[in-house]
Structures are given as structure tokens and as C-alpha cells.
Design a protein around this nucleic acid. Structure first.
Lengths: 217, 217
DNA sequence: ATGCTAAACAAACGTATGTTTTATTTATTG
DNA sequence: CAATAAATAAAACATACGTTTGTTTAGCAT
């Protein structure tokens, strides 16, 4: 029936070497499972998504799924990892922390985060909803990472306050509010459909900055 | 075993009258189920809470539960209703819409909403998480109510802009952002535990207003 | 007392779920 | 080509769930 979509570019491998080619297809397969499952989690919710759904969506046999992942819960954790890790990396890669002018620094970071979140809004919404299901140990890691992101914005704000470019009474609170505001679109999309992407980004940036920047005339 | 906690203040009733006393105990019972179930939904999530859990928590026999509620889903809907209806009523009862000065009007409404949400933060968090499970028809009602609340704030903002007390480019967007910001505490409580209730309320009010009021010197 | 109504209860039903196992096919190597 | 290992498919397993059923109990009117 579906004998046309078999993997055809398999290559030979030895037992000594971890077989990078085969390894890659396994990783590819795993990531395919996570990606497809994530779509289902988004659409139906984690609890309402069955392993049989995931099997059907990936085209991988039910029992065979367990050769790539260890449990349903495992898939959810992998799903979280997929989206949480790049966000933090981007800050270093883009050299945000090296920007001298605090206002430009904040603006750049803010806009980039808004764009990134806007593009994966469904995933963000899913994460907000399914956080509870994560095993406690993994939840701690996730919250730690989110805390790190907030801390970055806190540092940016603190520096801006020192230079009197920002006017913020409590930088930690402001950073928490700011990062929270980033999720406006994913969580309130149902009432914000009238805006184009660009309209929304501009309005968000403007509104968020106004609570921080000393004067924006 | 538990024969001591039987209802002992039963009174007689007729068939004509809907039996206010018995009726009351039935309503009491129903609301007890919803309240206890809500606590479980908050603690474990809707999907992870079983009817057997609810039976145990209420002390009402599993099968007997269905004399008071029609389904598990029904309980969730009732749970949403419990917290959604009072918020809207309060606006009318308190006469918020009659306050002349827009800034005072906004401040009053804002502070009251912050307090109300703070007090039921776990419930709000649960609602954010379990909205997906609601039957589509009921979901529409819930979103409508939330939209109405946003519209109220939009009106307040529009009036303030006309009087040049507020400086807002897009009142609809501002209202959406404002109402969203109200949920900061329920959704980000895990990172905001350092603040006392009063500290948090003051910071929230201050931050939210700054994005709207023309000048706050 | 007696019969009636409704609440209370234990047990069971049917189904759906995550996971494992078993049998079969496919590919690779000596 | 034979032998071995990996990949696949389907069925089975054990359990947990929401809901229903049939029966018992208790309160009230007659």
C-alpha cells in the first residue's frame, strides 16, 4: 500500500563505527515522530492524542514507534526541547549581549523574540497547556531555561536603568512582565486575528517598550 | 463507616412546590462536586482526574455522581461558569461605567480585576490549560464573555484617548494586552513568589497603566 | 404499618489506551 | 546462496476509564 515511501538511500555501515549514516536516518525518524506528534498535541491536546494517532500520522507502525522513543511522555519532552533550546542559543549567536546602547539592545532582542514566537505560536500555546504533564524533573529544567531568558532581559533592563535610558522601578518584575507579554499572540490569537503579522509586531513592540523606556517622544 | 456525615437537617416537602429545601441541598451538592472537582483539575489536570477521584474527594458514590451532573465534561463547564460570570456582573454592580474621570475609571477597574484574579489564580491557570477540552459550543460562550470584558476596557480606553488623558494608538490592541497582562500572576506565579500580594498588585497596576496613560509624572 | 419515590450503592459493561510480544519480511554479510 | 540481524506489521495484553445498570435503603404520605 505505502511501499513507495520507503527509505531508499540507506548506506552500509560497520559495527565499530556508530554508523553516522544509519544514525542520521534514525535521528531523522525520531525527529519526524516528534514533529508529527507535536502537530497532533497542538490540534487535539496531549491526553487526547493516542499513540495510534501518532502511528498513523507518521506512517510508522505502532509497536515500531517504541524503537525510536521510549514513551509517549518522552515525545512530549522532546517536543519541548525542540523549541526551547534554539531561543537561548540565538541570544549568544546574535551577540545581543554585546550591543552597547541599551535601548537598541532591548529593541533588537524584543523584536527578534516576538518574531520567533509569532512563527511558532501554536507550539507555544501547546507548551503552556501541556506543561503540567511533564515529569517533574524535566519541568524543572524547562522552568530553569525560561528563568534564564527572563534573567537576560532583567540584565538588559538593569543596565538601561543605570544609564537612565530606562525608567523601571523593579527590573525583575519588568522582565517577567515583558517575557510574559511575548506570549500575547499565542495565547490570545483567537481575538487578534484582525491584525497582520507586521501590524501586530509593531504594536507589541511599541506597547512593551513604553513600560520600560524612560521617554519615547 | 462514614455514617456520621449524613445529612440530618432534611425537611419535608410537597410535590407541587419544587421543594426549596431539598432543592437547596441538591444545588449545594452539585456545587460541592464542582468545587471539589475544580481543585482536582487544578492539581492534576482535567484528563488526569478520574470520576473515581471526584467520587473519593466528594464522598459521593461514583454512580451517584451522575444524579447531580450529566458528565465529566459537564463538571468542567460548570467550573468555568463559576468563575466567569461574577467578573462581568461586578462591572455593572460596582458602577464602573459611571465613573467620570477615565484614569480613575481605568485604575479602579484594573485594580479590582487584579485582586479578583490574584485570589483565584489557580483557577485561572486551570482555565487557560483546559480550555481545549470544552465542547465547541460552550467554548464559544466563554470566548464571547472574555471578548466582552476586553470590549469594556476598550471603551474605557477610547474615552480616555478622546479626552487626551490616555495616549494609545490602537485601543483594541491595548485592551487585549491589558486583559492579558491581568493573567501574569496565575501563569507566571512560579517565578513571582518573591513578591507579597500587595507588592505584586502595585507593580502590576503601575506597569499596565504606563502603557496607556499619557503622562505619569 | 404500607406503599411510593428518589437517593445511594456496588458491580459490571464496553471501550480505549500505552506498551509488549510474536511472527514475518527485508536487508546485509560471509 | 545461506545465515544472521534489523525492521516491520499485526495482534495481544493489561489496565484504566466514563458511564450504566440493577438493586438496596431511607424518608415521607396515606
Amino acid at each position: 500500500m505505502s511501499d513507495t515511501d520507503k527509505i531508499s538511500d540507506d548506506s552500509q555501515g560497520t559495527e565499530e563505527i556508530p554508523d553516522p549514516v544509519r544514525q542520521e536516518t534514525i535521528e531523522t525518524r525520531k525527529s519526524k515522530i516528534v514533529k508529527k506528534a507535536t502537530r497532533l498535541f497542538i490540534k487535539k491536546g496531549y491526553a487526547q492524542t493516542t499513540m495510534r494517532d501518532i502511528s498513523k500520522a507518521t506512517g510508522i507502525n505502532l509497536g515500531n514507534l517504541y524503537n525510536y522513543i521510549s514513551s509517549k511522555e518522552d515525545i512530549l519532552c522532546l517536543s519541548f526541547e525542540t523549541y526551547h533550546d534554539p531561543a537561548m542559543e540565538w541570544f549568544r549567536r546574535e551577540g545581543i549581549m554585546d550591543i552597547e546602547d541599551p535601548k537598541e539592545q532591548l529593541q533588537t532582542a524584543l523584536r527578534q523574540m516576538l518574531i520567533a514566537i509569532h512563527d511558532v505560536m501554536n507550539d507555544v500555546l501547546m507548551m503552556y497547556r501541556e506543561t503540567r504533564v511533564l515529569p517533574p524533573k524535566f519541568l524543572k529544567i524547562v522552568l530553569k531555561k525560561e528563568g534564564d531568558l527572563i534573567a537576560i532581559f532583567e540584565n538588559i533592563i538593569v543596565r538601561g536603568v543605570e544609564r537612565k535610558v530606562f525608567n523601571v522601578r523593579d527590573p525583575f518584575f519588568a522582565a517577567n512582565m515583558l517575557v510574559f507579554q511575548l506570549s500575547l499572540y499565542p495565547l490570545r490569537n483567537w481575538n487578534l486575528k484582525r491584525y497582520t503579522r507586521e501590524e501586530f509586531l509593531a504594536l507589541s513592540e511599541e506597547t512593551i517598550l513604553r513600560a520600560i523606556v524612560a521617554d519615547n517622544g
